[in-house]
């Protein structure tokens, strides 16, 4: 019967990082702009590269890892993979 608690805990815990990186949030249209925006938000930006036409940033904050995808046309976050 522990499972629902674990599942609930995961549901609560998982979006912590994604919460301050919601889709549509504007970070910038270039790799440099995205890097400074993420750094200003307190993220450790490990790597930024272009993937499938998007800017992909590998970030770490509070021991959590995420890949942030930004659409260079709009400068907005399109996806966050935790």
């Amino acid at each position: 019967m522990k499972f629902p608690f674990i599942a609930a805990a995961l549901l609560v815990a998982a979006p912590a990082l994604a919460a301050d990186l919601a889709p549509d949030m504007e970070l910038g249209k270039t790799e440099d702009a995205v890097r400074s925006a993420l750094t200003a938000l307190g993220y450790d930006v490990r790597k930024i590269e272009e993937e499938d036409g998007e800017i992909e940033a590998y970030v770490v904050k509070d021991g959590e890892m995420a890949e942030v995808y930004v659409d260079p046309a709009t400068g907005k976050v399109s996806k966050v993979k935790g």
Binding site: R46, K47, Y58, V59, V60, G63, E64
Partner: peptide, 10 residues
């Protein structure tokens, strides 16, 4: 690659 220490490290 899946650890916080080496995540995104080239």
């Amino acid at each position: 690659m899946g650890t916080v220490r080496f995540f995104g490290v080239e």
